Simulated assay, not measured.
Amino acid sequence: MWQQLSKWLLTALSFLLLDVLAYAPLSDDTLVNRLPRPDTADFDILQTGNLLAPILIPRVPGTPGSKQVLQHFVDFFNQSLPDWTVSFQNSTFKTPTHGEQEVPFINLIATRDPPGSQPGNVGHLTLVAHYDSKYQPEGFIGATDSAAPCAMLMHAVRSIDAALTNKWNFMSAQGDLDPDFEELKGIQVLFLDGEEAFHSWSSTDSIYGARSLAEEWEHTMHPATSIYKNYLDSIDLFVLLDLLGSPEDLSIPSWQHTSHWSYVKMAEAEERLRKQGLFKSNPDRVWLPDKNKKETDVFNSYIMQDDHLPFMARGVHVLHLIPSRFPSVWHTMRDDGEHLDIAVVEDWALLTTAFAAEYMELEGYFEQQPSKRVKRNDDAISKTEL
């Protein structure tokens, strides 16, 4: 009994240390030659078989459009990422516009963990976007809000999946993947429903799916001997993308003090990708300007209302990627596919891929990519605001 307890304590201590130290930047060779780059067809707003276009429809919770987009996600994981586990979390709420009718909300959770691991011993990089669209105005699409972020996450996890397999196969062959003792790090995608308010934003008319999931996971316990006590505790970092893909020059501040280190890492990845000329959009922009923000500076953690709030309130570390100034198309009928800058969308997809690859420590596990000319800013073909 004492031997087992000692092993558990040593494992817990190793997790605490590795949680701080575990982050491996990609080499220049991997960034340039091995990291999968976005395929423009995936983000073509008219190609219904690819990532983005099927999401560019009205998708109010409980409507056929919502079910159609949810099926698109399910098909994506089943066909492109069969090693991932897909599950759903369901809830119903009354809204200010539906009277006594209960509106259904469905969150999709897609997870990939190291082989042979137990869920309570795996910490997750959790990538998040909401997939619902506003109730009004009727026919609202919400391309930046948040169809494009959903597609960015789809690209990112598909791009690192083979490298994850290579890493875990190599570790298993070397005897380095011990589910009972080694550091275990998995990855999750949350597509959350019901972020948008039905009437006007309030604590009860907004983030319906996020509120339900955070509460449920707080009370869904792992076995007593697990490293993580509950499902919520298993989230190492909650990375939320929202309002991305606009042609406008919109910067994102570092919102949270406790996770500023992750903002710095993503800012460094942005800087390196720009230096290597791998972005298609305006090379003079900087999306993440707060890399050198000091610990003593002000972090406006609770000013920006979004899906992260019920998670952050329960102690989850959050990297919130949302601009401080919203796109001019925000909550208007112009927030559609035609008003996206596809070069910006693809660049955010690439940056998210790089960050996820570094977080999951995948350096050395990517295969050589086919040679592909990168369209620089001077010859890029992209849609801009009409």
Score class of each variant (00 low, 15 high):
Y135D: 13
E138C: 03
G62W: 03
Q68W: 00
H130Y: 12
S146L: 08
G65A: 06
L190R: 01
Q118W: 05
S66I: 00
L184W: 01
P82G: 11
P61I: 04
L56G: 02
V122R: 02
L108T: 12
Q101D: 14
E138T: 13
I187S: 02
F73R: 13
D75A: 07
D83G: 13
P64E: 04
T111L: 10
S159I: 02
K167E: 08
A148F: 06
H72N: 10
G49P: 08
V86L: 10
S159P: 05
W84E: 12
S91W: 07
P58N: 03
Q188L: 00
P54A: 08
D161I: 10
D113Y: 07
P82L: 11
M171V: 03
P61Q: 03
I57W: 07
L56V: 05
H72D: 05
Q136F: 09
E183A: 14
N78Y: 06
L81Y: 09
F88A: 05
H130L: 05
V74A: 06
G139I: 09
D75H: 09
S133H: 08
L125E: 01
H98N: 15
G175D: 03
F181Q: 11
T97Q: 13
M152F: 00
G139C: 11
L70E: 14
H155R: 07
L125M: 08
E183I: 10
S133W: 00
D176L: 15
V189T: 10
L81A: 11
I141S: 04
G62H: 02
L81K: 07
D113P: 07
T97N: 03
Q68A: 14
F140N: 08
I106R: 15
D113A: 13
K134I: 04
F76E: 00
S133D: 06
I187M: 04
F77G: 11
A147Q: 02
P64V: 10
R158E: 02
D180W: 15
G65W: 00
T48F: 03
E183F: 14
T97S: 13
Y131I: 12
H98G: 13
T97Y: 06
I55R: 01
D178R: 05
Q71H: 02
W84S: 12
A163G: 02
G139N: 05
P179Q: 14
P137Y: 10
M171Y: 14
H124L: 13
H124Y: 12
D145L: 05
I106K: 15
G62Y: 11
L52P: 01
H98Q: 15
E183C: 15
L81T: 07
N78G: 14
F140V: 07
P119F: 04
K94E: 14
F140E: 11
L81G: 13
P54Q: 06
L81R: 03
A129H: 09
L153G: 07
K134N: 01
S133C: 09
Q136A: 15
A129M: 00
V157F: 14
H155S: 13
M152A: 07
P179I: 10
V103K: 08
